[in-house]
Amino acid sequence: MSAQAAPALAQRGHLRLDAVIGAAATVVGPFEAKGPLGHLFDRVVKDDLCGEKSYERAEQCLLRGAVELLLDRSGVGAADVDLMLAGDLLDQITTTNFAGRDLGVPLLGLYSACATTSESLLLAGLAVTAGAARQAIAATASHHNAAERQYRYPLELGVQRAPTAQWTATGGAAFLVRPAGEGLARMVSATVGTIQDYGLKDPNNMGAAMAPAAADTILRHFRARGQTSRDYDLILTGDLARAGSPLLEELLAEQREHPGERLQDAGMLLYAEEQDVHAGGSGAVCSALVLASLALPRLRRGEIRRALLVATGSLHSPRSYQQGESIPTVAHAVELEAIS
């Protein structure tokens, strides 16, 4: 398929892509730097406030920092970026739009909670494939302290978290998507998720709520592509964590898919056991950080040939939860392969 051809709709919600992830950049908080992937991130901010006066502004600082670092390292000026697709977790996606003030790039704000990583990547890939952008940026950010005050409790309040609760990652990540050429990995195809809601209501167990969305998207992607999990070296979900991952394995096993070690979860890779984040990491940036620091370098080095990023999102709000609504969830998949 040539770069000029329109993206073919092979099956409902499945998109053929012809683009590469040219470069990636990450900025993380000090707590994330202490995790097992700490040494793989590009920049660590000194403290949680990123030199700002609020955590909301700190989150903007992380997103801006990741985008600036990305432009810097790929030698691309902001004026050469045709489109930026980015999202975050805060109300009215203020992080994205406020950071956009300083970037001067055509910007579309996105929201799919923690599935925003794959949503932004697949839309950037789609824009490039369709010839609508020569260089597009996909980016996400989240901040633990900003998410806590929006979704949960004041930071200093004494609360015992549930074992199934997850920890919102602090960081920003940005990816440069271009037409075929040099880069970290090729974007081959993507599957847009359908909203799944199995009636779960506990925001302290988002992994369980999101596992069916991940299973549905993975299976739909396999069907559209005529693949099985054996075609992949890595299926990276983000972020089902320790509560959701075994549920996904069961749901896949019922459809005779046994990915075994190929199935990894970003929420379980970002933090170490002794960091006491309960079930694992989450947040819009969590899967993006693991993708940029772990999966993309391995694809570039040819250690793995094919990977499926399946970022999952819990689409509830504090208000929907208080009103007793169940948690709708979504997962979007992006298929990546090694370039050489």
Partner: peptide, 10 residues
Amino acid sequence: YRQRVRRMEQ
């Protein structure tokens, strides 16, 4: 599924 989640929940 909800029953399974309850069963598997830590």
